[in-house]
């Protein structure tokens, strides 16, 4: 049972990784990378490492994604000023 969950999560993560690299729109790419971290924290639960799971969830999916979005926002802001 556990093995099937792991395999499913694994495939999902690899798919998310490819999406993160190859999706046209940056926003969804960032969301994909957040998803990878989320699934990774689930795997940490399976690996009996709760501390790591919490950290990964909080920092990996939460904070990294927020920092990415802010950066994207700042870069987008600059691009709009330039165009209009």
């Amino acid at each position: 049972m556990i093995l099937t969950i792991i395999i499913v999560l694994g495939i999902l993560m690899l798919a998310a990784a490819f999406m993160a690299l190859y999706l046209k729109d940056l926003l969804s790419a960032i969301i994909a990378s957040g998803a990878i971290s989320l699934m990774a924290s689930v795997i940490y639960i399976i690996l009996a490492a709760p501390d790591v799971a919490m950290t990964e969830a909080a920092i990996g999916s939460g904070l990294t994604t927020i920092v990415f979005l802010y950066a994207l926002h700042l870069v987008r802001k600059k691009q709009e000023d330039k165009h209009d």
């Binding site: 993160a20 690299l21 795997i43």
Partner: peptide, 18 residues
């Protein structure tokens, strides 16, 4: 694209932690 490079980096990091 620079952002994609950084995304690549964070994926490497997640991989290593796993």
């Amino acid at each position: 694209h620079l952002f994609r490079i950084i995304l690549g980096f964070s994926i490497i990091d997640t991989g290593i932690h796993l």
